[in-house]
Design a protein around this nucleic acid. Structure first.
Lengths: 134, 134
DNA sequence: TATAGGGATTCCAGCAAATGGAAGGTCAAG
DNA sequence: CTTGACCTTCCATTTGCTGGAATCCCTATA
């Protein structure tokens, strides 16, 4: 199966699939004309990658998950631990975004938003820096 | 004021400040010895950048905000529109992350997480691809 | 005065995770 | 035989920095 078809099947752009090959996540065979030739097993891997990436796993996490996927003797707890870690990271990200949103909302609410140049948002940005470690 | 001191004042790493100069967000003068010399106005810009970046504005948005900051005749509604757009983007991101979290939580809950190789998480990843536009 | 240290300077490389584009090879249809 | 849709490789770009090397500058102390 050519890369274009595999791309459709896996719901990934061809460029991305080539990139995954470049970083050794998948190794399709080649047809006599030099075209990549994807097997059903390859397609499974590609769909796996598409799904895992869309769930927010990094490439390196995908690599790890794939090795667990390949290892039919691994414990399910290994996989569960990775997923739990990811949920924790998502929670932290959501908390962070919620705080951002709250700050921006407060700023927006105090800005009259008309033709006058006076703007509390700009004033806030100009006023004080948030304390964040460099 | 040297870059190190400016970095402390603005709560930004010196490397980042040099980077901001490279992309024309700030143009400090130079001391006779070639060192960058930051004025109070420069510091304001740096603090502005630190704050805006920490609020999730992209560099290009910061560039726009700075131009509004510089333009004392701009309408506050211009600034408000940018902030509102950012809030919308944050909301979309949070929604997305919440969905991710829900999926992962469901997977984790169905995984027994013990020494057995059978794992619903892996099965799900291998099973079907989420429909996402390439 | 020599030297040691702590800053400063430049430039080059690289991170994630693709994506865009150019130059060219292959294939099937009309 | 040509057109157009694929495919190939390679190189550059994106975002927002960060790390490191080589070199320079300034101050303080022995």
């Amino acid at each position: 199966m050519n890369i274009g078809r595999a791309a459709e099947e896996a719901n990934l752009p061809p460029k991305t699939i080539r990139y995954y090959e470049e970083i050794d996540l998948i190794r399709p065979s080649r047809a006599p004309n030099g075209y990549r030739d994807y097997s059903e097993a390859d397609l499974h891997r590609l769909r796996f990658l598409q799904r895992a990436r869309s769930l927010g796993f990094t490439i390196e996490e995908c690599r790890l998950l794939l090795s667990l996927y390949d290892d039919h003797n691994r414990a399910s707890s290994d996989v569960k631990a990775i997923a739990l870690g990811k949920i924790g990271a998502i929670d932290r990200k959501i908390t962070e975004l919620a705080a951002l949103r709250a700050t921006l909302t407060r700023l927006v609410e105090t800005c009259h938003g008309d033709d006058r140049p006076d703007c509390p948002i700009i004033d806030d940005l100009a006023g004080q820096g948030a304390r964040v470690e460099p």
